[in-house]
Design a protein around this nucleic acid. Sequence first.
DNA 1: GGGCCTCCTTGACCCAGATCAAGCGCGAAT
DNA 2: ATTCGCGCTTGATCTGGGTCAAGGAGGCCC
Lengths: 250, 250
Amino acid sequence: MNKVTDDLHHASQDCGSCPIRHRAVCARCDSDELERLEEIKYYRSFEAGQTVIWSGDRMDFVGSVVSGIASLTQTMEDGRTQMVGLLLPSDFVGRPGRLSAAYDVVATTDLVMCCFRKKPFEAMMLETPHIAQRLLEMTLDELDAAREWMLVLGRKTAREKIASLLSIIARRDASLKLNGTQGPLVFDLPLTREAMADYLGLTLETVSRQMSALKRDGVIRLEGKRHVTIPDFTRLMTEAGDDNDGGMMA
Amino acid sequence: MNKVTDDLHHASQDCGSCPIRHRAVCARCDSDELERLEEIKYYRSFEAGQTVIWSGDRMDFVGSVVSGIASLTQTMEDGRTQMVGLLLPSDFVGRPGRLSAAYDVVATTDLVMCCFRKKPFEAMMLETPHIAQRLLEMTLDELDAAREWMLVLGRKTAREKIASLLSIIARRDASLKLNGTQGPLVFDLPLTREAMADYLGLTLETVSRQMSALKRDGVIRLEGKRHVTIPDFTRLMTEAGDDNDGGMMA
DNA sequence: GGGCCTCCTTGACCCAGATCAAGCGCGAAT
DNA sequence: ATTCGCGCTTGATCTGGGTCAAGGAGGCCC
């Protein structure tokens, strides 16, 4: 069983045919809808580094991530880039109504997406209000996440930025694994230092320095470059400058 | 006729009862829906500086701005604040599903809002798919705008940030007035230097300095502190670092 | 094993923008 | 008319993070 097949197998267990989220999250799909969605869906896989969508491309599909990670980035003419969102498994991408994408979508790791051709998907959305409803809620969540990220970009120091990113990834990772948050959190960073820098509005050197500093101060432990252990999540949150509430992702 | 009455008059001309946008924008409301919306709507007015919603407040209404400007801001414990969006006339605020607001909404100028109690509005949304549809599109637009702003916050210089903000306000202002963009654009800044700084992730001193610099370099003209003339919009766009496309607001 | 990637770390220096501080302009209150 | 206060401007100085530069650590292919 190769990688892609394995992913599809995994997908059929976890995500079923629900276009919106894992079945566990979206319990409202009835079998008629699933059948109709089945007819218009297909899978696409990408290698790490491959571009899924160029900004300005005609978007003739919508879909959700089955496995792997993709990033949304905006680029200026002179090459400065800013990552504006992360797509983790179960995240949705694409929009009704507009033809062209506003930003690049790039596979950060090997990636499998579950896609739906746009026209039939839109038609279905008009007939089944709760899909539009669910999509609206997800989009509002992403909007909140994007706005929270604006606070990170606009007002936080480099150290706080790193801590914010780590806490978001850790939280998201923990929720995918359905662990509670008790005990030390352990995960692999899905991003290179450069990608982290692009997300945080920093340079990769600064990311590296601050990671070293957080390690030196015992806020995180690092094995190799990617494997992270967070002994005390509360401590990390304090470092991130959010002493109470948490953030989400897009 | 006092200010508020005048605003309501203006509203009934421009915005009708459409909860979503000005009638000109949303042509899909039929009279049945308008009548039902009429039953659940009410107006609220606020003075400049008043808080419309505290973050964490129970949100028992949704609504749109009739006149005036409000800002969405997030605040850290130590007082650092970041504006994460602007609400201009016709913009919608509030969300189905979630009870508490994620950020403060503060009236920047005197403000009139057209509100709908949440429960009946949600009920109506479930029955009339195209309202949910329209709301979804608007939310996606705001998401795109928020993400574009992330590029501004993360990667642009102070001068570029100021130019970006001015170009957004100018564009938005021009579209409200239904002017074309030919000829010099003239408008009043609806924000103090401090509010601009909060939006741009800068200090008010830097905002002031860069405004002076743009004035000195002939990119803008200033009469008093607020009245701005933009002789050459293309020039402003170049200063902002977006040489081709444009941004939107939330 | 050795060469050669790519990703990461660390150091030295510099500069854009923050911070601290002084003062201006103008409308409102007395 | 004077004073007050707020929003803004401008100057002087400081500093966090950018920039430039020099390696280090795996991983992979020959």
